[in-house]
Design a protein around this nucleic acid. Structure first.
Length: 820
RNA sequence: GCCCAGAUGGCGAAAUGGCAGACGCGGAAGCCUCAAAAGCUUCUACUCGAGAGGGUGUGUGGGUUCGAGUCCCACUCUGGGCACCA
């Protein structure tokens, strides 16, 4: 493709200049209004792919646009550089993950530079920096001191593929690992947890205040999963003083409790089990422990399979409402980890209980009248029946009364339960931040003293995954004297989940050279919260939830006094790049590398494509057509170049009406583009600039020619509007016009003059019975009566009039609709 | 199963309840050229019609309205999330 300029030369020139001159470096004492634009912490996977390109194109547009709007924009870059892919690659290549990672980092760095994305590179942060590790460990210890980090034995998710445990959030709905796709097994292990559940309530209600996509907010709310209910005791029917504690959100259905169920892991199970039932119960517990989470979490299906999933314990408890004894079952459909691990079963009003009761021949008593003809369980609203003192009440008041009853009569307590569990942060892998504790035979868990941080992993560790942390096999690392008493002790060998690293990096960016603490709250305050966070929808739950938790916890443990408790004010989640219906990704092997475009269409052309192809939030289907679109975008930039050069333009002196109209069009375009960019409607912003270009071209190349001064002003505006979208070409044209003067990207964003934006006349549509019959030019402030008269008098309308019209709807200056 | 998005030309898409298809891609014709590429100009929803002109059109079926791509109800399909959470 023959182009009017040398793409590579221009792009390299400007990229070097922005970097060398520190154009986008900002200091913490910058007097301008602050703006924090942030793209999500990238894992260094090598050169950028189209998903990165899209992400950084949006981020860079925001940075450049907000800078031109007069703000000091913090636009940092760094790397989420710990993680499994590097470790696995190092195992394969028998090398060190650091080498692999740092090579990949350099690739991604030059890749984003090649795109023309600008950052304050002085602030670069990456997770395996010793300083970053020091502060990550400091944060861990502060959490530990505050009781937010604790060690406990719990059933955890073990991924055989990754050879490590995973957080609940990293296990997909079908019970497989989100990374490797392996089926996750349950194991009882002693591990480190963060007490994110302490923040469940705040994490939930603060969601409302965030300017985030509704869908992400919903996902966060669902994940936290709050439910209000009552916890109370079911007394044993044999008169023993023990009781079975259960949780319910439907205390109002208490009269319909016809059995109770405990989870197979329930501590009272043994006590509840009678000798006759022992073999069956043992069988079931055994079965449940072997059953994968997938099976256990599969939907309850009636039939033999379901029957095997529960067994009678032989014991009875008393229904506190009716006083009747009801049997206690053990069944795997009750989770030991939610509520009290035991439930009161109400088959008539609960789908799962209904299915189970049917198979096990348990009675079903309706307590809420189901609508006429309704069969099966009914969980909706209705009037209570068979419910003693609750009869006749609707669900809501009945809940209230029943709860009160349980509080008074069954040691009940109103409680709130969350689906959210504490965050399991231990990982049995090498390439992560070591957990800075020591286990001493005398003192137990001992925190490594702050002045001995960072705890760094030695380089000569055998990485072969064996189910225990590679660090555990390194005697030199493992064996240490206790920091408190000096006794022979062992270091913790697990590393932290890499999601801990991405939970506070944005704070370090704001104060990257801080010594003595992770960051200085005074320095950070000027930038936080992040004004615009940009990333992929795939982080809707994990990363965003963890980072929100960290922010709150950091404030509470005293590391971030005075900082906002929510880190990200506005979030934008871009769509995926898809190919043949699946996500374009390295693992799918369907990447289209951006490099192939840089020397032909250039970074500007590729950027413009990503901005123009559709709404930023929508997925992009990458097809053969995409190539053509990219070339179209590059050709458009060629046209801009030639137009600005004055090619085929006839210049003259002195502005005519046509020139003035062009200048008004410039202002209308400024208004449109500004509005569109603010609304993240980049595709229509590009369209507006293209329309404007077409207008300028028609005008300047017409027989009448263009007033030279107007042409200059009008094309200046064009370059400014295009500057955040296609920065290299526009910067170059700008500089060639005025060498040595203020560079394009340092100019102020143009302001639309409302007086010039307004139009003298507009086109009004005349309809007869809703069909357009004529168009007339009218003043924008035309009155309703004038519009009606004008319409009725119009010959094209009169043609259809047979008598007096039945109605005339006038909406000046838009349209008049005459109904005959 | 539940929840949330979405469905508009050959394609990507645009449209405060008021001219559907802006902008672009692709395509057609023409100009330029020895020729091609590039560039430029015009046309390009479908359909009937030689033409002027007419009709039909925003997933399907209803409804509200002078007027619906847009609002309401029901449904189909696609994508995403959640799915024994008591």
């Amino acid at each position: 493709m023959a182009r009017p300029f040398n793409v590579t030369e221009i792009e390299q020139k400007w990229q070097a200049r922005w970097l060398d001159e520190g154009t986008y470096e900002v200091d913490n004492d910058d007097p301008r209004e602050r703006y924090y634009a942030l793209c999500m912490y990238p894992y260094p996977s090598g050169t950028a792919h189209q998903g990165h390109v899209r992400n950084y194109t949006f981020g860079d547009l925001v940075t450049r646009y907000q800078t031109m709007r007069g703000r000091a924009v913090l636009s940092p870059f760094g790397f989420d550089s710990f993680g499994l892919p590097a470790e696995n690659a190092a195992i394969k290549a028998k090398s060190h993950p650091r080498l692999f990672t740092e090579r990949r980092m350099e690739e991604l760095r030059s890749s984003v530079r090649r795109l023309g994305a600008v950052y304050d590179w002085r602030r670069e942060v990456y997770s395996h920096q010793p300083e970053y590790i020091r502060w990550a460990q400091t944060i861990f210890l502060k959490f530990y001191e505050a009781g937010l980090a604790y060690r406990a034995e719990a059933p955890v998710n073990w991924c055989p593929g990754c050879q490590t445990v995973l957080a609940n959030e990293q296990v997909l709905g079908d019970g497989t690992c989100e990374r490797s796709g392996d089926v996750v097994a349950r194991r009882n292990l002693e591990q480190w947890f963060f007490k994110i559940t302490d923040y469940a309530e705040e994490l939930l209600y603060e969601v409302d205040s965030l300017q985030w996509p509704e869908r992400v907010k919903t996902m966060q709310r669902n994940w936290i999963g709050r439910s209000e209910g009552v916890e109370f005791d079911l007394a044993f029917a044999d008169g023993s003083d023990r009781a079975l504690r259960v949780f319910t959100t439907r205390p109002d259905t208490g009269f319909g409790v016809t059995y109770a169920v405990v989870a197979p892991e329930h501590p009272l199970l043994e006590e509840l089990t009678t000798p006759e039932q022992a073999p069956a119960v043992r069988d079931l517990v055994e079965r449940a422990s072997r059953t994968s989470d997938i099976e256990r979490s599969s939907t309850l299906e009636a039939g033999a399979a379901l029957e095997k999933r529960g067994a009678f314990t032989g014991s009875y408890v008393l229904n506190p409402f009716s006083g009747q004894p009801v049997p206690v079952y053990v069944a795997d459909y009750v989770l030991s980890t939610y509520g009290t691990g035991a439930i009161m079963a109400v088959p008539a009003e609960d789908e799962r209980d209904w299915a189970f009761a049917e198979v096990h021949g348990l009675p079903i008593v309706r307590t809420v009248a189901a609508p006429e003809g309704h069969e099966g369980p009914f969980a909706g609203d209705g009037v209570h029946v068979n419910s003693g003192f609750l009869d006749g009440l609707e669900v809501a008041p009945a809940k209230e009364r029943a709860a009160q009853f349980l509080v008074e009569r069954a040691r009940g307590e109103r409680t709130i339960n969350y689906r959210l569990r504490d965050w399991l942060v231990s990982r049995q892998r090498f390439w992560g931040c070591p957990i800075p504790v020591v286990y001493c035979p005398n003192d137990g868990i001992v925190a490594v003293p702050y002045d001995q941080l960072p705890v760094l992993a030695p380089d000569d560790v055998v990485l072969d995954p064996s189910g225990q942390s590679p660090l555990a096999t390194h005697e030199g690392f493992r064996r240490v004297p206790c920091p408190t008493c000096g006794a022979d002790s062992v270091r913790e060998a697990d590393t932290m989940d890499t999601f801990t690293d991405s939970s506070w990096y944005f704070l370090r960016y704001a104060d990257p050279f801080s010594e003595g603490r992770p960051f200085d709250p005074e320095q950070v305050r000027a930038w936080m919260p992040v004004d615009q966070y940009i990333g992929g929808i795939e982080h809707a739950i994990l990363h965003l939830l963890y980072a929100r938790f960290y922010m709150k916890a950091l404030v509470d443990v005293g590391l971030a006094p005075g900082l906002p408790r929510e880190p990200f004010t506005r979030l934008f989640t871009q769509g995926m790049i898809r190919m043949d219906g699946t996500k374009m990704s390295k693992s799918k092997g369907n990447l289209i590398a951006p490099e192939k475009y840089y020397d032909t269409v250039g970074a500007d052309g590729l950027r413009l494509f990503h901005l123009f192809v559709g709404p930023p939030a929508d997925d992009v289907d990458w097809t053969e057509k995409s190539e053509e679109l990219i070339e179209g975008c590059a050709r458009y930039l060629d046209r801009v170049w030639r137009l600005c050069e004055g090619e085929d333009v006839t210049f003259r002196e002195g502005a005519t009406a046509a020139d003035e109209e062009v200048w008004r069009e410039a202002h209308r375009t400024i208004a449109r583009v500004t509005e569109d960019l603010d609304a993240w409607s980049f595709n229509t912003a590009v369209a507006a600039v293209m329309e404007y270009t077409n207008t300028l071209s028609r005008w300047a190349r017409s027989a009448e020619g263009a007033d030279a001064a107007t042409f200059r002003r009008a094309t200046d505006v064009l370059l400014q509007l295009l500057a955040p979208m296609a920065p290299h070409v526009t910067a170059e044209i700008w500089e060639q016009r005025r060498p040595g003067e203020t560079p394009l990207h340092a100019t102020d964003w143009p302001q639309a003059d409302p007086a010039l934006v307004a139009r003298d006349t507009v086109v009004m549509v005349l309809q007869v019975n809703g069909k357009v019959r004529a168009r007339v030019e009218v003043a924008p402030d035309l009155s309703v009566t004038a519009a009606q008269e004008l319409a009725l008098a119009h010959p094209e309308v009169a043609k259809y009039l047979t008598g007096v019209p039945s109605r005339v709807v006038a909406v000046p200056p838009r349209l008049v609709n005459v109904i005959v």
